[in-house]
Computed example of a mutant assay.
Amino acid sequence: MRAVVITERGGPEVLRVQEVADPQPDPGTVVIDIAAAALNRADLLQTRGMHPPPPGAPPWPGLEASGIITAVGQGVADWHVGQRVCALLDGGGYAEQVVVPVRGLLPVPDGVDLVQAAALPEGLCTVWSNVTGPGGMSAADLQGQWVLVHGGSGGIGSLAIQILAGFGARVITTAGGPQRAARCGELGAEVVVDHHAQDFADVVREHTEDRGVPLVLDVVGAEYLERNVQVLARHGQLVIIGLMAGGGTAQIDLAALMRWKSVHGTLLRARPPQEKEAIVTQVRREVWPLVEQGRIRPVVHAKYPLDEAVQAQDAMAAGGVFGKILLVP
Rank of each mutant, 00 (worst) to 15 (best):
R205G: 01
G152I: 05
A95H: 02
V85R: 11
K261A: 02
Q46C: 06
L89Y: 08
Q198V: 06
T29D: 00
A37W: 10
S138K: 14
Q311N: 12
M244N: 12
G154M: 08
G62D: 09
C184L: 07
P54F: 08
Q179D: 12
G265M: 13
W260T: 15
P214I: 02
V127E: 00
H196L: 12
I156V: 00
R269E: 02
D218N: 04
Y304C: 13
V219K: 12
A165K: 06
S158F: 02
V280G: 05
V112A: 12
H80A: 06
Q162R: 02
R271T: 08
G236K: 03
A302F: 05
G154V: 06
Q74A: 11
G154H: 05
A245G: 14
R259S: 12
L217I: 04
Q18G: 04
S153D: 06
E308L: 10
I172D: 11
Q116K: 14
C184T: 06
W146M: 00
V299S: 02
E308D: 11
N130F: 04
V72I: 07
L63V: 12
T281E: 15
D314I: 13
V99D: 00
V31H: 08
A117W: 07
A201Q: 00
D199T: 01
L89D: 09
R16M: 05
T174H: 01
A118Y: 14
D314M: 11
E64Y: 11
L106R: 15
F322E: 10
G93I: 10
P101N: 13
P54G: 08
V263C: 07
P55T: 12
P55G: 11
A37D: 10
H301E: 11
E209I: 03
G133R: 08
P134Q: 08
D253V: 07
L124N: 04
E13I: 07
L106E: 14
A182Q: 15
H264L: 03
E8N: 15
V231N: 09
R103K: 15
V193Q: 00
G104Q: 14
F200K: 13
P298C: 13
R259H: 08
R259L: 08
S158L: 03
R295F: 05
G236V: 02
R48H: 15
N40H: 13
V299C: 07
L238E: 08
A95L: 02
